[in-house]
Design a protein around this nucleic acid. Structure first.
Length: 436
RNA sequence: GGGCUCGUAGUGAAGAGGCCUAUCACGCCUCCCUGUCACGGAGGAGAUCGCCGGUUCAAAUCCGGUCGGGCCCGCCA
């Protein structure tokens, strides 16, 4: 029976059978060490028999092996135990030399990202690289746990759409049996529709953006956590939910993956249960005062302001995360709700984390007549067949609601302390890259 | 879409008119090595310096073009 790497130390004195990949060879003459990698990590195997060592000749890193040996307690071995009197069996021989070395840190320098992704298939066998995606999986698990605990129903909505979209980002056009369809740039309409059924829903799925953006924070296939909640008493309810969810996921990931985050040189988590909140106007004012660059005429935050306000909040409020609220109406989309107390601003807040926009969290206009009016004002035809089913949900009763589009890739990037969102994605898609 | 940058063995880097018949490290191959864990030591193979053209007695190096990356801005998560 196969014993996994983390269990080896529980079998001291016993004969065990392990299987995995040849991860590293160290030949010291009469003594040879090899590391065998399995899903849990590495096992050190000591080989002294010349015939057994000879089996490794010509075999490259990546060879799939079975090893039978006796577990010996050994303080000099990583993990405190290792296999002795090893008998090797090559399950899948590998003779091709790997194009990259997986037992050493991979270069994440911007200039070398192309190589990193070209060799992604093998690079992901690097233990450090694997940690990034274990942390990603952990974050997704905590986000799901939180939302499930708060009675959100996980939904799955179509990614091939008939054409009408929320506007904003460019869409990919696809041939749909001879008709033109588009890839969903967001589940916006569907999640709002589903508020009419479940009150609280969320979806974790890719969204497709055909923007010609070439930056360290954009990809054309982005993993979004979309949530939407009904019967809110105000916009604050949405911000509070997103805040609590983010706090839950981050504090738990820093607990469960403390060692991994440390070994990846992730920044220390600086967070309080309540995230500081500033209005866009306040940020413009503070930034202009602090830097001398006048942003008070901007309708949105400029990227440098996002970095600045996060630095400011970290230093002065002890928080890596901040909300920026009250975006001006000039930036609104037709389905946003205008601030009833101040028609120049929208019930819309962005969540920023470590200098980067992570989520956008608006309240929606839920009154049918008002929504139709806002569509017309935005130059959108409410009679367009693509909006028929969306509007139907409103016509037949939607409560006050709001939610967020939350960039999972960016959260992973900033949690781990990576410098490009693509490093947080197994197989990233951008304006240039369609493989692997 | 705009601006700025970078392309040198499989990988990561050095070289910035002649010292280049291109250097180093890792990896690979051969040999030595009984406690390595980025093992160590000796030797070897591996690059028409992204591509095309130009300037020059002479180009990896300067210029123009082209192809492929990266970063920033715009847009957005």
């Amino acid at each position: 029976m196969r014993v996994l790497s983390s269990q080896v130390k529980d079998h001291v004195g016993q004969s065990v059978h392990i299987e995995g990949w040849l991860h590293k060879k160290r030949l010291l003459g009469g003594l040879t060490f090899i590391n065998v990698r399995d899903r849990q990590g590495l096992v050190q195997v000591v080989i002294q028999d010349k015939d057994e060592v000879e089996k490794l000749r010509g075999l490259q890193i990546g060879t799939v092996l079975a090893v039978d040996g006796t577990v010996k307690e050994e303080p000099r071995a990583p993990g405190g135990a290792e296999l002795h009197d090893a008998k090797l069996e090559v399950l899948v021989p590998v003779e091709a030399e790997p194009p990259i070395e997986i037992d050493k840190p991979l270069s994440h320098k911007p200039d070398n990202l192309d190589t990193l992704f070209d060799h992604r298939v093998l690079g992901l066998r690097n233990l450090q690289e694997q940690k990034v995606f274990k942390i990603r999986a952990g974050l997704l698990r905590f986000l799901r746990d939180f939302l499930t605990d708060h009675e959100f129903v996980e939904i799955n909505t179509p990614k091939i759409l008939a054409g009408a979209t929320e506007g904003g980002a460019e869409v990919f056009k696809v041939d749909y049996f001879g008709r033109e369809a588009v890839l969903a740039q967001s589940p916006q309409f569907y999640k709002q529709i589903m508020v009419g059924a479940y009150e609280r829903v969320f979806e974790i799925a890719p969204a497709y953006r055909a923007e010609l953006s070439a930056t360290s924070r954009h990809v054309s296939e982005v993993y979004m956590l979309d949530l939407e909640m009904g019967f809110i008493e105000g916009h604050e309810d949405v911000l509070d939910m997103v805040q609590d969810m983010t706090y839950f996921a981050l504090t738990n990931i820093y607990k469960e993956f403390a060692d991994e985050l440390k070994s990846l040189n992730a920044p220390e988590l600086v967070l309080k249960e309540k995230f500081p909140r500033y209005t866009v106007a306040e940020v413009h004012e503070m930034y202009t005062k602090a830097t001398g660059t006048d942003t008070t005429k901007e309708k949105d935050l400029i990227p440098d302001e996002e970095r600045w306000i996060c630095d400011h909040a970290k230093k002065n409020e002890g928080s890596d995360a901040v909300f920026v609220t009250h975006f001006p109406v000039e930036a609104m989309k037709f389905y946003h709700m205008v601030n009833p107390d101040d028609p120049t601003t929208v019930m819309w807040g962005d969540l920023l984390f470590r200098g980067l926009e992570i989520a956008t969290c608006p309240q929606r206009e839920h009154h049918y007549d008002k929504l139709v009016e806002q569509m017309k004002k935005a130059g959108i035809d409410p009679e367009h067949p693509g909006f028929k089913y969306y509007l139907q949900a409103f016509k037949h009763g939607l409560p006050a609601h709001g939610g967020c589009g939350f960039g999972v890739d960016r959260l992973v990037e900033k949690t781990v302390g990576l410098s490009n969102v693509k490093e947080a994605i197994l197989f990233p898609r951008d304006i240039n890259r369609l493989t692997p």
